[in-house]
Design a protein around this nucleic acid. Structure first.
Length: 434
DNA sequence: TCTGGGGTCCTAGGACCC
DNA sequence: TCTGGGGTCCTAGGACCC
């Protein structure tokens, strides 16, 4: 795939860009609240209504009007602080001023409140981030057609055949994108351009914020090998620990290892991948459209719940999660045939159970019924902190497969003896675990 | 005051089929 | 009696990413 499937055209070098919005969530918030610039701000925690701040201002200064146009005029001391937070949320993003206190993303908010109680706490506002995400992606799509989505603030772009994409190794096109995005949104981004996605991703981090880095094949030794193995997208904490145990700290250390040695210690597939990655090799194409594999909803409870004692509450939560997944599926036009549940116990241990049907569904009652059977297969020995519902093996609702499933399972008598429940019925009568 | 939510991909064993 | 492999699907768990 990728460069391998692309016929080599004389003069055209494969150039892949990775574009990463700089401190995306925090930057979007600062567009609305410029008065917070330079202050320790943390985004995450609970879900507050976005009008809360305006409501407080209406109380404090009833003589004047407070609408969404006046957000930038809200005094800094009116914003909620970390110290006032109660709950189990984690931090999504922290500004540099907040990071100076040791606060970082994925940290529990309560822990962060101890480190920096006076930091301002803003709720996450995905609707707002999605809006700016759409805006910058549309701008890039206008300039280059081959774009791969990597979440709300990241994309890969194939520069190879774009007019100007080869000039100065891609720098000219990258500059154009940066300027167009900043002019339209006030946000900055960093772009790396390299012969493949692996190197482009690393390059985009080199000059943050608002930077551009070009990596040529000759740069491998000087720019990539000195980096820590963790900088490779795909090497996480576990793999890094294993590598360290073998004395491998940098990508250069990794590149010194024989392919066979890596395959023996890390498995055929993973070992070969590690070897390729260390040598800057990556054939993956830029994938412009991909189908979802699964959709899920999960929630962590405010307090751990007991299967027996909190049965009613758990049942309601379970029903709501099923309704949400079903609504997600229906809104996006998908059906699935593998229904699964996920539990997390108070000791943070997680278990999953799933069941594959002989047909596809997006029916909330059927999802709840099958999910309920999955729940019964779990040994409930501890209190629960999380419950999730997942529907996998998705196909488009109007596809041939959805209408005529090619099932490899004999229909399970337990589940298909009766028709799937009609969608309008209620489902509180079922003798489920919850 | 530990540790969110929504995803993808891989592995490995067992079932089942040829 | 004995005994091959290959292939696919299902399930559970785990690593990793944004």
């Amino acid at each position: 795939m990728g460069s391998a499937t692309k016929p080599d055209r004389p003069g055209l070098i494969r150039r892949i860009a990775h574009l990463d919005m700089d401190a995306f969530y925090a930057s979007v918030e600062l567009l609305r609240y410029p008065q917070l610039k330079g202050l320790p701000v943390v985004i995450g925690g609970g879900r507050r209504r976005e009008d809360d701040l305006l409501d407080r201002m209406r109380l404090l200064q009833p003589e004047r009007e407070w609408t969404a146009d006046h957000l930038s005029e809200i005094p800094v001391d009116v914003f909620p602080r970390l110290s006032g937070y109660v709950g189990r949320g984690v931090i999504t993003t922290a500004t540099y001023a907040a990071r100076a206190f040791g606060v970082g993303s994925a940290m529990g908010v309560m822990k962060a409140a101890k480190l920096c109680p006076d930091a301002i706490l803003l709720p996450v506002d995905f609707a707002q981030y999605r809006h700016y995400s759409r805006t910058f992606k549309d701008i890039v799509l206008d300039i280059a057609p081959l774009v791969e989505d990597r979440g709300v603030d990241e994309i890969y772009i194939d520069f190879t055949d774009v007019p100007g994409g080869q000039r100065e190794g891609g720098r000219v096109l990258a500059r154009l994108m940066q300027k167009t995005i900043t002019d339209a949104t006030g946000l900055t981004c960093s772009i790396g351009v390299a012969p493949n996605k692996l190197l482009a991703k690393m390059a985009s981090e080199f000059n943050k914020p608002n930077g551009i880095s070009i990596i040529y094949p000759d740069d491998l030794e000087s720019k990539i090998w000195p980096l820590a193995c963790r900088k490779i997208n795909g090497i996480g904490p576990k793999a890094d620990e294993k590598l360290r145990a073998q004395g491998i700290h940098t990508i250069g250390d990794l590149a010194l290892k024989e392919r066979d040695w890596l395959m023996q210690h890390f498995g055929q597939s993973h070992g070969a991948w590690l070897h390729d990655a260390a040598h800057g090799l990556d054939d993956r194409p830029v994938v412009t459209d991909s189908e979802p594999v699964s959709m899920s909803r999960e929630t962590t409870f405010e307090k751990d719940l007991h299967v027996v004692h909190d049965r009613a509450a758990l049942g309601e939560i379970f029903t709501r999660l099923c309704q949400q997944v079903a609504a997600d599926l229906q809104r996006k036009g998908y059906v699935g045939k593998t229904i699964g549940i996920k539990l997390r116990f108070d000791d943070f241990q997680s278990v999953t159970r799933d069941h594959t049907l002989d047909h596809y569904t997006a029916n909330p009652l059927e999802i709840r019924q099958v999910g309920g059977l999955c729940l019964k297969r779990v040994d409930m020995k501890r209190r629960l902190r999380l419950l999730g519902v997942r529907v996998g093996a998705l196909v488009k609702v109007d596809s041939d497969e959805a209408l005529h499933p090619t099932s490899h399972k004999p229909p399970s008598s337990k589940l298909t003896a009766q028709e799937p429940p009609a969608q309008k019925e209620t489902c509180h009568e079922q003798a489920d675990l919850f």
